[in-house]
């Protein structure tokens, strides 16, 4: 669940004034865990429109192998699987990648988010780990943003700090 959300005040751009050269970044932390058996987590990042429910995938990190064995566990990203994964033909090159080791990552989401119609959105970050747990974090965002903002949430188990930074 959403533990802590720090959201700056958002100003809705009433009439879409096209702002150029904006920059939107998702910072995502895969925490280092003191466990006997560690496997990199599967991670899915997607954004959903509050009004239409439409989903845009931003990232999916999973075990990619020739035999497709790693796809067997995609369902464990439960909400992503339900909202998007189960309707996709895997692999989808545009947003998938291998699992990542613990550390801090930055995903450039500028192109994907700029393509979205103006409105309210929720950005979801879901992680699931073999022999471990699952966690989902949500970040609210109104697009396009008029002012620079950072929305942040902090995970408790499978995710560290996640933050969406928008520089219009």
């Amino acid at each position: 669940m959403l533990r802590k959300t720090v959201a700056a005040i958002l100003l809705v751009a009433g009439t879409a004034t096209n702002v150029q050269a904006s920059e939107m970044t998702l910072a995502l932390e895969v925490p280092r865990l003191q466990v006997a058996e560690y496997h990199n987590p599967y991670v899915a990042v997607w954004v959903q429109s509050k009004s239409t429910g439409n989903i845009t995938n931003l990232a999916l990190w999973y075990q990619i192998d020739e035999r497709g064995e790693g796809e067997k566990w995609l369902k464990d990203l439960r909400q992503w699987w339900r909202r998007s994964g189960r309707s996709l033909e895997m692999p989808v090159d545009s947003f998938t990648g291998a699992t990542r080791r613990p550390g801090s990552y930055s995903i450039d989401v500028t192109e994907a988010l700029e393509a979205l119609p103006a409105g309210q959105y929720t950005l979801y970050i879901e992680a699931s780990r073999e022999v471990g747990g699952r966690e989902i974090l949500k970040l609210p965002a109104t697009l396009p943003a008029k002012e620079p903002i950072t929305v942040k949430a902090v995970g408790e188990s499978e995710l560290g700090t996640v933050a969406l930074q928008i520089k219009p």
């Binding site: 497709g68 796809e71 067997k72 566990w73 369902k75 699987w81 994964g85």
Partner: peptide
């Protein structure tokens, strides 16, 4: 009851 992957 909910499965993913090729021919699970």
């Amino acid at each position: 009851t909910v499965l993913s992957g090729e021919k699970p």
